[in-house]
């Protein structure tokens, strides 16, 4: 790993212990984020993207969830064994997070102002007057006018796009080194999506902040990512630079995902879709989890889990297709 790595996730496994069995939501996931880099985690619903993000923030509800294995290093600090107090100092300060649903992510009974100033009091120890000035500045930074009026309004008086801007303002309030955005545009309509992404990109570049973006939207990935991590059924199946992933996808799943993306000015009767469904994450057999849906499946795929391997510089894939002959047999 390079020297300016700020977040290093190693062999992270987060499981949920439910009545029906153990759900391996995140299963042996490794990746890293360097300073100023944007890493995207892509995958369909239920593949463990959000749980990965929540694990990094240590916001997994315990019980039923538990980080059972692995390491999360943030600036060489171990987050998994960090004390509650240390975690609290990091959250909202060095690492902040924005969520998928801006409508429900803000407290309905507190004003926007109260909610923006909270981290300012907590981490930057500002006085009331300073905090208000700072909050007004933040509201303007995320592109909302009438900042003084917004400061005193309640979440239900604002639109979804505005609320997501407020969430971004809260996340930025203490100059974080890393911003985790968990599907920040999913709940918004398309024009607002583009605006929010543009805003995130701008702010990121201005502040040389790192960003971990969780999304299922490949358009978003192409737009903002430097590095892409593709997840499937709790495992990383491919990871590489955004160019590698889009130009030369290796894993049949990644290839399928890219094929099912609509392309402008190309008339197609029907969009490609990967046949089959995501497997149930309870009681997975030791096999490639994409086995049932894969066009290139071989006998070995149904019997053992492929290891992640380097296919190119900084481009890794977990698929038996790329394993050398002698290992396969």
């Amino acid at each position: 790993m390079s020297d300016n790595t700020i977040l290093d996730v190693k062999k992270l496994s987060t499981h949920f212990f439910t009545e029906n069995g153990v759900v391996k939501a995140v299963n042996d996931v490794s990746f890293s984020v360097s300073e100023g880099q944007t890493v995207c985690i892509v995958g369909e619903s239920g593949c463990g993207k959000s749980v990965t993000a929540m694990s990094i923030m240590r916001l997994i509800e315990d019980p039923p969830g538990k980080i059972v294995d692995g390491e999360i290093l943030f600036q060489d600090k171990d987050l998994i064994h960090a004390s509650k107090k240390d975690l609290r100092r990091l959250r909202g300060n060095d690492i902040s997070m924005i969520f998928q649903e801006p409508m429900s992510s803000l407290n309905p009974v507190l004003t926007i102002g109260e909610q923006i100033t909270e981290p300012l009091f907590e981490h930057r120890l500002l006085t009331k007057k300073q905090a208000k000035q700072e909050a007004i500045k933040l509201i303007e930074l995320v592109g909302i006018g009438r900042s003084n009026e917004i400061f005193h309004s309640y979440p239900h008086q604002l639109s979804g796009g505005m609320l997501q801007r407020i969430m971004i303002a809260i996340a930025l309030s203490c100059d974080p080194l890393l911003l985790i955005a968990d599907e920040p545009t999913t709940a918004l309509d398309v024009t607002i999506q583009a605006q929010i992404l543009e805003l995130l990109k701008e702010i990121k570049e201005e502040r040389n902040m790192s960003m971990l973006l969780i999304t299922h939207d490949l358009g978003v990935v192409a737009e903002v990512a430097d590095y892409v991590v593709v997840m499937y059924a709790g495992k990383v199946i491919e990871q590489g630079s955004v160019l590698d992933i889009f130009k030369d996808p290796k894993h049949p799943y990644t290839q399928g995902l890219l094929q099912s993306k609509p392309v402008l000015n190309q008339r197609k009767k029907r969009l490609y879709s990967i046949p089959g469904q995501v497997p149930n994450l309870i009681d997975l057999k030791p096999s490639c989890y994409f086995y049932d849906r894969c066009e290139h499946r071989m006998s070995i795929c149904g019997g053992s889990i492929p290891e992640k391997m380097e296919v190119d510089d900084n481009h890794q894939v977990a698929c038996w297709l790329y394993e050398k002959e002698e290992v396969r047999t």
């Binding site: 975690l87 909202g92 902040s96 969520f99 992510s105 909270e118 981290p119 907590e122 969430m167 809260i170």
Partner: peptide, 26 residues
Amino acid sequence: RQDFVRTARAKGLKERVVIFKHAFRN
């Protein structure tokens, strides 16, 4: 279990504040 309680935790607030300021009032 609501999202805004998770947001409050993600801000790094003390658990006491999360429970009494954010959750309890609602």
